[in-house]
Design a protein around this nucleic acid. Structure first.
Lengths: 230, 230
DNA sequence: GCGCATCTGTCATTAAAGTGTCATACTTCC
DNA sequence: GGAAGTATGACACTTTAATGACAGATGCGC
């Protein structure tokens, strides 16, 4: 399994570079963004596992950007660490209020950065992965790694399970095949986009016959998980 | 057998130190954590036998942290003692509601601390290790160290016994081979992960023919003990 | 201390399940 | 009707797990 991917948002290339090196050493993948707009497109396209966000950004301020991220259902669940030069307790509180998972004041050592990052990831993985997700009579329980319909176990392969888990945690939203490959297969895999179709079919088959239409085809775009009729 | 290991969570180094000395005298091992994040990584990495948690913590409050621990299936069964300066009955109730096993108000003497700690450990050990566990006609009695099916003794090796005991006390949950090695073999052993497969097979064989499917393979992940059909 | 019996961990082999790709059939939209 | 986009079944290949065998370790009784 590929390691976690981090999005670094900071307007100073030197700092980004410093962080990038630290992450590389710790075997994390990463993207870099210099402003909020750039950051936003990376988030939409790649869905990083965690975001390191500088408090001070040109244009939209970091804090405003954080607020936006946490308000949007599609990104609210991405863990967020705020970086700042300010040491006032005030900002710390404000940062955590916005929904940041941690708060690091500059200057910080690479060791500290990685340690906190690990801690946050570990914490959120537990929090996010432990709750069963239920949609009507379809239930996915990550704890026992099992999918049931009316308490009847449903058999499916590992990929279909991951796919379903992703869909159930990201309902009512289209994903392109490329995005699904990124999210479900994991970033750097070389797989035909059409392969997604096949796994979609396998998943639909597993949910047959009553839940076939939960996974809807969006012609020309990709797929969507939705409880509403297409 | 090495003595029990305690995790001390308190933001004041002086208090941690005081507790540490007391524990050392009583021949306990310990780790120290200054905040919730640090505590969490220690718990995940080392699985202490008991946690001493200060009510007041920077960032995540102690009580919130306790709630989180007790909600997560993986940590809910670690005994927890809450430390606090507050003496109001209110907090005590709240603390115990969260699932704490005991509650100590500061200031406390090292003697009191150790006494309560021992009591809690004794209690939970008794609760966890002395009660026979019964699942349908399969019974495991820790006291006489015996497994029976319909009162017919079932023969198995020590490792299989421990494995079964672990599974029976942690049903309906997937475990990776790595986790099983940690939990059943004990932390720092260097054993091939595939070895787990072999012991799983030996255990299954022992439970043949009627209970073979209690231990289910979760392909790509690990194993699960479950009474429900796969 | 010795010998027997049991238990353990590892390996090689076999069996099973899952994966990605393709060719073909089917839909939809213009 | 034709072009583009999807669905589907088949299949070769890869990955993962089950199994049986075995040699060293361990423990026990004598």
């Amino acid at each position: 399994m590929p390691n976690k991917n981090v999005l670094i948002v900071d307007d100073e290339p030197a700092i980004r570079e410093m962080i990038a090196v630290a992450l590389e050493m710790a075997d994390y993948g990463y993207w870099e963004a210099g402003d909020a707009a750039e950051a936003h497109s990376i988030i939409v396209d790649h869905r990083p596992d965690i975001i390191l966000l500088d408090w001070m950004l040109p244009g939209t301020s970091g804090i405003e950007f954080a607020r936006r991220l946490k308000r949007d259902g599609g990104t609210a669940d991405i863990p967020l660490i705020i970086l700042t030069a300010k040491t006032e307790e005030d900002n710390k509180v404000q940062g955590l209020e916005v929904g940041a998972d941690d708060y690091i004041t500059k200057p910080f050592s690479p060791r500290e950065l990685v340690a906190r990052l690990k801690a946050v990831l570990r914490r959120t993985v537990v929090a996010g992965m432990e709750t069963p997700i239920e949609i009507n009579d379809l239930k996915l329980d990550p704890v026992c790694h099992r999918v049931t319909i009316n308490d009847q176990a449903v058999a499916m392969g590992p990929t279909e399970y991951k796919l379903l888990q992703f869909f159930m945690t990201h309902q009512e939203r289209v994903y392109t095949r490329g995005q699904l490959l990124d999210q479900v297969w994991g970033g750097n895999v070389y797989v035909e986009e059409r392969t997604v179709d096949v796994h979609i079919r396998r998943l639909r088959k597993a949910l047959e016959p009553n839940h076939y239409s939960l996974i809807q085809t969006v012609r020309g775009t990709g797929y969507r998980f939705s409880t509403k009729a297409a």
